[in-house]
């Protein structure tokens, strides 16, 4: 069911969008190019984040520190079906969107997109958000300094997203 939905999602959206654009008489070509421009900028803007994270992780990996980290934590995390390799991603996710994206990309590249770690990292990246960044940006824009319980509800959503990703990936991909 889940993978069937995944297979159809993008063709379905492509079809709907094109049809809708046709009906509404949108200048499809010009608009597409404008959007593509944004996509180009977005991809370029991620380079500094990716470089920072890739460098730190490759050093961490090449030195043998990653192996050490995994051998220390995996006895505990394996009990919950979590590969210890994704723990750094879980920690980074609410803090820095760019940083998390860097870790995700590195995990997918190293272990392969179709490995369990690759699939779990992909799901994690998509299902949780940079809570602290969003809070700072949105509250900062209206000079609100007392966040009250917004941090609690935001983080509980992130933690749930993390746990739910682990559970569903173990069910679907293992």
């Amino acid at each position: 069911m889940v993978s069937l939905a995944a297979k159809w999602a993008i063709p379905f959206i492509l079809f709907t969008v094109t049809l809708l654009a046709f009906v509404r008489r949108v200048n499809v070509y010009e608009v597409f190019v404008r959007g593509a421009q944004e996509g180009f900028t977005t991809a370029i803007k991620t380079i500094p984040f990716l470089v920072a994270m890739f460098v730190a992780i490759s050093v961490f990996r090449a030195s043998g520190a990653m192996e050490l980290f995994v051998s220390i934590f995996s006895p505990v995390t394996n009990l919950f079906g979590i590969p210890a390799e994704v723990i750094p991603l879980g920690i980074m996710r609410p803090l820095s969107g760019g940083g998390a994206l860097g870790i995700t990309a590195e995990l997918i590249k190293t272990y392969g997109p179709d490995s369990f770690i690759g699939r779990l990292a992909s799901t994690l990246q998509g299902s949780t958000d940079t809570t602290f960044f969003v809070l700072t940006l949105y509250f900062g824009s209206v000079n609100v300094v007392k966040y009250r319980y917004a941090v609690v509800s935001g983080l509980s959503a992130d933690i749930t997203g993390f746990i739910a990703s682990v559970v569903i990936c173990n069910l679907v991909f293992k």
Binding site: V31, R34, G35, E38
Partner: peptide, 14 residues
């Protein structure tokens, strides 16, 4: 990214 944001821009305009 260029492809997808292009499509989504069309979606937005539509």
């Amino acid at each position: 990214m260029a492809f997808w944001l292009g499509i989504m821009k069309v979606a937005e305009e539509a």
